[in-house]
Write a protein that binds this DNA or RNA. Sequence first.
DNA 1: CGTATATTTGATATACATCAAAACGCGTGG
DNA 2: CCACGCGTTTTGATGTATATCAAATATACG
Lengths: 265, 265
Amino acid sequence: MLGSNAGTAAPLQPFTVALPTSTASAYGMPSMPRQQAGRKIADMLTLLSGQVAPQRRVVHAGDVIYQAGERFSHLYAVNSGFFKIVNLTVDGRVQVVSLKFRGDWLGFDGIADGCYVCDAVAMDTSEIWGFRYEGLLAACVEKPMLLTVLHEAMSREIAHDRDSLMSVCTLPADARVAEFLRQWVLSLENSGMRTDEIKLRMTRAEIGNYLGMTLETVSRALSRLAREKLISFAQKGRREVRIPDANALSAFVQRCIAPAPSLMQ
Amino acid sequence: MLGSNAGTAAPLQPFTVALPTSTASAYGMPSMPRQQAGRKIADMLTLLSGQVAPQRRVVHAGDVIYQAGERFSHLYAVNSGFFKIVNLTVDGRVQVVSLKFRGDWLGFDGIADGCYVCDAVAMDTSEIWGFRYEGLLAACVEKPMLLTVLHEAMSREIAHDRDSLMSVCTLPADARVAEFLRQWVLSLENSGMRTDEIKLRMTRAEIGNYLGMTLETVSRALSRLAREKLISFAQKGRREVRIPDANALSAFVQRCIAPAPSLMQ
DNA sequence: CGTATATTTGATATACATCAAAACGCGTGG
DNA sequence: CCACGCGTTTTGATGTATATCAAATATACG
């Protein structure tokens, strides 16, 4: 499982596509000032809270927002902090399938069958806004703008999930960890927060579980990234990561999937 | 990358969940008669076409429904046949991230940014229904039932994508291929079609790309499944697979992730 | 402070990728 | 109808990335 898949992909249908996918956003893009960066999400949240009064709730690391199997009733929007979405199977497998930051929504998975399908767990002190789904739908009929917001969020989630799948399937471990950090930075950027220093608040085991590798591999990958000066750790505690240049992470990912210095041309 | 992740998962938060996830559906469930199986989707499609006149279109293998980068305008519902969704990255990686069967929708990814983010390509002669997104929204305000249908479809897609991610991250290659076949059978079942014989119409390379492994590994996995009598090939052509018992595939997956015969209690 | 939990790092094992070659199937054109 | 060529599939031999096992720090927590 590695970049070579891209190479092996020859037998796939030919593509004539030119434009980049969502993964592309911010590959080497000049970064906006922080206020602007978070504007879109801030606007969305103020619009939202202006139209339908949310049930605001402050939660702490470990708090469970909803659990798989529980009756579906609410959707939630993240106002601050972050959450993990954990999928479970009957055969006992457990995986973190998604991380949710400011502006993301939780609970869409519950709509289809009337039951949540995952667990949603706070990873830090966070503020979450709850909305009764029925109420939200009713409000949408009045204010079509709300519907747009909702659909955009679902659409974005679908696109993001596909990008995750793609990372897992086409990137070697080191690149996957680099990409993971880059995505984290992007999420912070969109939230209008500092992006040069991130507190992971996840164990290596959790990160590994999310990325489809073991905790040891995560640890080694991080050590390697640090050795290459792409990241550095806070003096105390290896869970704070300083990222001087997020673009350098992108470049690293590129290098991983194009091992040959490419003398073709 | 394998089942061991479940084992390594100890440091994750403890769960008290009882109910199965969406992956669970039909693990050893008694199968419904075929007419009933496809009822839900059939109902959805008739409801849909009753409320808003779709632009019906018959397409053939290889036909492109939309391409990444193209301006978003329509959503599509699959009435028959099937499609692949292909994700592309700026760095040239290409991956089949999803397969769409009868009752599934195409194009949700385009809502968020006004551009499709993937390619959608027919894999067989198929009938697809196009709906102008604007028109669909307008109709939704009149007929809330439509909104429900739409949201259910998106919700289901989100849940399904997460299950895919989980397969890739937690199952060894053989189990992943078995699970892939099982999912295919499920999709056919939901469409109300025969499930004991499936025409893949995908090359091993495409399957491998979708599952995050090489074509050789797919081939070996299939050979192994055939050797264990879980599947068999049509006398002519290795792309038709007979699946006498889909539950046996589930059992095989279980065995793969629980290599130790479990002498514990 | 001392104990439990995380993290790092090394040594080794293994599942899967890679490379290679043969067999098969499929369409085309003689 | 058969011969040819090309793409697909299978299968084997070998290499390698990552898992597994293990032990030594480091860090958090009571």
